[in-house]
Each structure stands twice: as structure tokens, then as C-alpha cells.
Amino acid sequence: MNNLEILYRQVIMDHYKNPRNKGLLNDNGYKTIHIKNPTCGDDITVQSLIEDGIVKDVRYDGTGCSICCSSASVMSETLIGKKKEDAKKIAETYINMLTNKEYDETVDLEEAVVYQGVQKFPARIKCASIAWKAFEGTLESE
């Protein structure tokens, strides 16, 4: 299998076709951040609900390529139920991994680790990170 096939065969197609936690809620408890990449049209809104220091829920909606949409779905599954601090650490580690920066390999990225393959397609790093950046934004707006 070539790099592209490995990338798509794994988790990506599953989450692209069957997105989890998709759809936004009209609930003031949620923090909402919208990020758009005007050059390619990826457009994602992410919501997080933090209660007692725990990520109770992560929701998202938007349009984009398969890498963008699937990464939002994978992110929601990875982060729900985590302590806020751990979620923050996972998001930071994930983005460092994508952008080829040094990252803490002891942090368990769970399914999101497959996006390591995106490193081989530098033009797509933005696609895979936009939802995670929006999530980080929701924590900052807490």
C-alpha cells in the first residue's frame, strides 16, 4: 500500500462516512469556536462542554475534505471524558506531531495517532489540524 492508501484505509474513511458527535447544540454551557480556511473552503465549528474539570462533550459541524471532517470526529471521540488538562495536552501533542515538531510520545493519542501519516502530505496538515485548533480555542475561551 502506498502512503495515501495507508492514510485513507485506516480510521479516516470510517469516521468520514460515519461521523461521531456531529451536529451543534444550542446550549450556553458549551463554548463554541468557528475556524475557516478560506483558501480551500474547510469550515469547522467545534463546541466543548467542560464540567468539574472534565470534557463532558465535544461536538462539531462543518464542511471540508475527508481529512478535515474525519479528524474532527476522531478528535471528539478521543477527548470526551478526559480531564481538561489531559485533553489540552493531547491536543498540543497532536498538533506538534502533525507539524513535525518535537512531541511527547508518552501521551496516548488513541485513534488520532493515525494522522501521523499526514506528515507525508505537508499541504494537508492544515486540514488535519483545523478542528483541533478550534477545540484549543474553546478551552481558551473558558
Partner: peptide, 12 residues
Amino acid sequence: VHPHDAVTFFDG
């Protein structure tokens, strides 16, 4: 197929 998915194939 989203064009951004497609273009990565052509890039290959």
C-alpha cells in the same frame, strides 16, 4: 470526492 482529497492523489 472532495477536491482537496483528490489533489493529494494527483500530487503523488
